Amino acid sequence: TGIVNVSSSLNVRSSASTSSKVIGSLSGNTKVTIVGEEGAFYKIEYKGSHGYVAKEYI
């Protein structure tokens, strides 16, 4: 489990790349469930599926 550490919002992406499609966003202080790691990204549970967020903001 981690907490989103941004002042505005954090993009949730379809894969572990900054060039991948943005599938949603999370507000600061949102609790997320981390299910894996891939490079500079965490794989998280997101809306019944999975998404990826940059580690530096969790």
Rank of each mutant, 00 (worst) to 15 (best):
T1V: 15
T1I: 14
T1N: 10
G2C: 09
G2S: 06
G2H: 08
G2K: 06
G2I: 08
G2W: 06
I3N: 06
I3K: 08
I3W: 13
I3F: 12
V4D: 03
V4W: 03
V4T: 07
V4N: 04
V4Q: 04
V4I: 08
N5Y: 05
N5M: 12
N5C: 13
N5L: 09
V6K: 13
V6L: 09
V6S: 12
V6E: 06
V6D: 06
S7P: 11
S7L: 10
S7H: 13
S7N: 11
S8D: 13
S8T: 14
S8W: 14
S8M: 12
S8R: 12
S9R: 14
S9Q: 12
S9T: 12
S9C: 14
L10V: 15
L10T: 11
N11M: 14
N11F: 13
N11S: 13
N11Y: 14
N11P: 15
V12F: 02
V12W: 02
V12P: 00
V12Q: 00
V12H: 01
R13M: 15
R13Q: 13
R13E: 02
R13S: 06
R13P: 00
R13T: 10
S14P: 03
S14A: 15
S14N: 09
S14L: 13
S14Y: 12
S15K: 10
S15A: 14
S15I: 06
S15R: 12
S15E: 14
A16G: 06
A16F: 04
A16V: 06
S17A: 08
S17L: 08
S17K: 07
S17F: 07
T18C: 15
T18R: 11
T18P: 15
T18S: 13
T18M: 15
T18G: 12
T18N: 15
S19G: 11
S19T: 13
S19K: 13
S19A: 11
S19R: 11
S19E: 13
S19C: 12
S20K: 02
S20V: 03
S20Q: 02
S20E: 03
K21S: 10
K21C: 10
K21F: 09
K21M: 13
K21G: 08
K21T: 13
K21Y: 09
K21R: 13
V22R: 05
V22K: 06
V22C: 07
V22P: 05
V22H: 04
V22W: 06
V22F: 07
V22Y: 06
V22T: 07
V22G: 03
V22I: 14
I23K: 04
I23Y: 03
I23E: 02
I23M: 08
I23A: 02
G24V: 03
G24P: 01
G24M: 05
S25V: 15
S25G: 06
S25D: 06
S25C: 12
S25E: 11
S25Q: 15
L26E: 01
L26G: 00
S27Y: 11
S27N: 13
S27P: 15
S27G: 11
S27W: 12
S27K: 15
S27L: 14
G28I: 11
G28L: 13
G28A: 14
G28K: 13
G28C: 11
G28Y: 14
N29T: 08
N29Y: 14
N29P: 07
N29E: 08
T30D: 11
T30W: 07
T30M: 10
K31D: 05
K31Y: 14
V32Q: 01
V32W: 03
V32H: 02
V32C: 05
V32G: 00
V32F: 05
T33F: 11
T33W: 11
T33N: 11
I34L: 05
I34P: 01
I34G: 00
I34K: 01
I34Q: 01
V35H: 05
V35F: 07
V35P: 00
V35I: 15
V35G: 02
V35D: 02
V35L: 15
V35E: 04
G36Q: 05
G36M: 05
G36F: 04
E37P: 03
E37Y: 07
E37T: 09
E37N: 06
E37D: 08
E37R: 06
E38Q: 09
E38T: 08
E38C: 10
E38W: 08
G39C: 06
G39Q: 05
G39T: 03
G39L: 06
A40E: 14
A40M: 12
A40W: 08
A40V: 09
A40S: 11
F41A: 02
F41T: 02
F41L: 02
F41H: 04
F41E: 01
F41S: 03
F41W: 12
F41C: 04
Y42L: 06
Y42S: 01
Y42W: 10
Y42E: 00
K43D: 02
K43H: 05
K43C: 09
K43Q: 08
I44Q: 00
I44F: 02
I44T: 01
I44D: 00
I44E: 00
E45R: 09
E45K: 10
E45I: 14
E45W: 10
Y46H: 05
Y46R: 00
K47Y: 10
K47L: 13
K47P: 02
K47V: 06
K47M: 15
G48Y: 06
G48T: 07
G48Q: 08
S49Q: 14
S49T: 11
S49I: 12
S49W: 07
H50F: 15
H50C: 08
H50Y: 15
G51H: 02
G51S: 02
G51L: 01
G51R: 02
G51N: 01
G51C: 02
G51I: 01
G51A: 10
Y52F: 11
Y52A: 00
Y52S: 00
Y52H: 01
V53P: 00
V53R: 00
V53D: 00
V53K: 00
A54H: 09
K55L: 03
K55E: 01
K55T: 04
K55V: 04
K55H: 03
K55N: 02
K55G: 02
K55W: 03
K55M: 07
E56S: 08
E56Y: 10
E56R: 13
E56G: 07
E56L: 11
Y57T: 05
Y57V: 05
Y57H: 10
I58T: 03
I58V: 10
I58K: 02
